[in-house]
């Protein structure tokens, strides 16, 4: 290792915060193991698992053969035996060879074993675009997992949440798909609380896996988002305030399955207008689900149909055109105006 362990820094970016959470979870419970391609010796291509090998040894921090079905499948077996595996998928699109293991086994083990033996694994997936990478390094496949009953799907947008949520995900008995917005991995730093984020076993950690977070208060328009688009939504909200005097209430969903339905309907009803923003393709995406929930439950409180600003129903483009695909502050602002002007 040429770099010192980042686990002790107080102000942390998302990579360091995740790293801190992994260190804490591994130190607290020797059933936690980390598996993946290039995670041990180099600490992962994004360095999220840096320093774990030195501290916890090569039985618990494992560079695996290059085989995602094998990685996820063996992690399930380890969980069946009683370990708590944390799997790293190197980039979003490389989860697809492991998809069968996730969909037909991870998602169903609890159901198939009378609830006795859930596949207690965490699958970390650095995902999304904006990083100027070649084909298949920029997908946002979260809806596939949301559409697979039996999985929890979560996605932090801040270092603090990242650290608390990775710890909660490891403690959670159910399989958790942990989406990591790689575009904002190093975007900013936050103070991390001194005390470990470990829950007390009574669900304090788990609340991070079931609740949304209000990222900005407002009364005029509720904007829902998650991951790398949250900071863009906050920028757009400032512009709405400055230019139009509109105060947006911004909700960072954090958990994509199960959605925090109260937070969603509450915010939408409070403002009477709502917009959903995500980077993934539009059709059957999270936006469709959030929009449906709002229409089904609080339609009479609405003054306009719920709007969406999303990626498109096209393959993620080669990177010279990726900024055309990704929701921008301008597009979010325009989408908000459309809902406001209805």
């Amino acid at each position: 290792m040429t770099e010192p362990s980042v686990a002790l820094a107080t102000k942390a970016n998302m990579v360091e915060a995740l790293n801190r959470g992994l260190h804490e979870a591994m130190a607290a419970d020797d059933r936690v193991v980390v598996l993946g391609e290039d995670v041990a010796k180099t600490g992962g291509v994004f360095r999220v698992t840096a320093g774990l090998l030195d501290r916890f040894g090569e039985e618990r921090v494992v560079d695996t053969p290059l085989a995602e079905a094998g990685i996820v499948g063996t992690a399930i077996g380890m969980a069946v035996y009683g370990l708590l595996p944390v799997v790293e998928i190197q980039f979003d699109s490389f989860v697809y060879p492991g998809f069968e293991q996730i969909a037909v086994h991870a998602a169903r083990y609890a159901w198939r074993t009378k609830g006795e033996v859930p596949a207690s694994i965490v699958i970390r997936i650095p995902y999304g675009g904006g990083v100027r990478m070649p084909e298949l390094h920029s997908d946002s496949p979260e809806a596939l997992f949301v559409h697979t009953p039996g999985l929890k799907v979560v996605c932090p947008s801040t270092p603090q949440d990242a650290r608390a949520m990775i710890v909660a995900a490891i403690q959670d008995p159910d399989p958790v798909i942990f989406m990591e917005p790689k575009r904002i991995y190093r975007a900013g730093r936050q103070e991390l609380p001194d005390e470990p984020a470990l829950g007390d076993g009574n669900g304090t950690g788990t609340k991070h896996l079931s609740t949304a977070r209000r990222a900005r208060e407002g009364d005029d328009l509720a904007i829902f988002s998650y991951g790398a688009t949250v900071p863009l939504v906050l920028d757009a909200a400032e512009r709405l305030s400055l230019e139009l005097g509109v105060e947006a209430l911004v909700v960072d969903l954090r958990t994509l399955y199960p959605l925090d339905v109260e937070a969603i309907t509450g915010a939408a009803a409070h403002c009477g207008r709502a917009l959903v923003v995500h980077e993934a393709p539009r059709s059957a995406g999270i936006g469709a689900e959030v929009s449906s929930l709002i229409h089904e439950r609080v339609m009479l409180d609405l003054e306009a149909p719920v709007g969406r600003v999303t990626g498109y129903d096209a393959p993620f483009p080669q990177f010279a055109n990726e900024d055309d695909y990704l929701p921008s502050v301008d597009r979010i602002f325009a989408g908000a105006k459309k809902v406001l002007d209805f």
């Binding site: 970016n13 290039d38 180099t42 992962g44 291509v45 994004f46 360095r47 650095p126 904006g130 990083v131 100027r132 990478m133 790689k182 575009r183 904002i184 991995y185 190093r186 990177f319 010279a320 055109n321 990726e322 900024d323 055309d324 921008s328 301008d330 597009r331 602002f333 325009a334």
Partner: peptide, 27 residues
Amino acid sequence: LGSVERPAEVKPLGPPTSPGAGAEGKT
């Protein structure tokens, strides 16, 4: 897309970036 100003052309990231500059890791 046509209703908003077009984003600037995306340039490649270029030579190895400083640690805070991008999402790319060391490897």
